[in-house]
Computed example of a mutant assay.
Amino acid sequence: MSEHQNNNGDKRQRLHLLPKRIILIRHGESQGNLNTAAYTTTPDHKIPLTELGITQARDCGSHLKSLISANITSSDYRLYFYVSPYERTRSTLREIGRSFSKKHIIGVREECRVREQDFGNFQVSERMKVIKETRAKFGRFYYRFPEGESAADVFDRVSGFFESLWRDIELNRLKSDPSQELNLVIVSHGLTSRVFLMKWFKWTVEQFELLNNLGNCGFRIMELGDGGEYSLAIHHTEEEMLEWGLSPAMIADQKWRIHAKKGDWNENCSWYYDEFFDHLTDSEEEEEKRKHDTECYNADSTFESLSS
């Protein structure tokens, strides 16, 4: 067998190990969502779900099961969970889990790097109001909360999580069976989920600033396309993505990813090359023509000067 055939075989094997879906879920309604005064007496990581939040999580589990099990038998899918260590995310996962039998869940891991953005310790309501007004002026991505984090800080730790996630997938630490659809579910927080998508799809800071937060128990489904790339456009509609704050160019990129081969470069991604080099010519021939025209113009100018 040639080295080329071996490489193709390795690529096919890696594609088989990739999760069918990567699903980001925000926690259910918490006491902090209901009343921000909760943060003045309770540490953020201990804020519990409300009764509505528990119901939302159970409904989310039922919806998730219907989505995953559609058109396949119950023995043909599995789930692996990563969960933020905060009380509200852990409780959300417990309620989601009620919809599945143990045979469907091949693993769960508490992952500190997908925790909520750190807003500081106990939060004084009036002070936080002023701080959030300042953040709106400064920009959500770079503004760092006093004693806390910026979204850029969250981006850095999510980037570290990516490295671990890919190692888990490539080394098959998730114990994925190629004959079963693997669904990787990350139960986390609103901003963390947006940062995750930003990192994955290489969105810019400007694009991040336009994204809307997920609702409680809202989710984003990244589904594997036929070429090995993940896309939001397989499960979600264009209308949904517009509501989330994706621009038409970002949506076009998601549609391109449905059939793109892993490692391909989307030449139509205007926020990369064209953002910085839109003034450059498209080819060496055009560059040569520009030089020729410039030289002709200079020669004509010189001739006119000498003639006069």
Rank of each mutant, 00 (worst) to 15 (best):
Y82R: 14
F81C: 00
K255I: 05
P248T: 07
L64Q: 09
E223P: 07
F276S: 11
L17T: 04
Y230H: 12
T237V: 02
Y272P: 01
I105L: 05
I22N: 03
D293E: 15
N33H: 07
S159P: 01
G215L: 03
F138P: 03
G28P: 00
E275T: 04
R157T: 12
E209Q: 15
S270W: 00
N298T: 06
N216P: 05
D168T: 02
D44V: 01
V83R: 05
H292K: 14
K46N: 09
G120T: 08
N33T: 11
N6E: 13
F81V: 11
R135W: 07
I25G: 02
Y273C: 00
S305T: 13
W166G: 03
A38V: 05
H16D: 13
E229Y: 08
L182D: 01
Y143M: 00
G215A: 09
S69G: 11
L171G: 09
L93N: 02
D253H: 15
E243I: 10
T42P: 07
R173T: 03
C296H: 07
E288T: 10
C296V: 15
S193G: 10
S305V: 09
V205I: 12
L165Y: 11
Y297R: 12
D76P: 02
Y39I: 03
L242Y: 06
N35R: 05
G245I: 05
T134I: 14
R78Y: 03
F162G: 07
F100S: 11
T42L: 02
E206H: 09
T134P: 01
E126V: 09
L210N: 14
W166R: 11
K291W: 10
N71Y: 08
S159C: 09
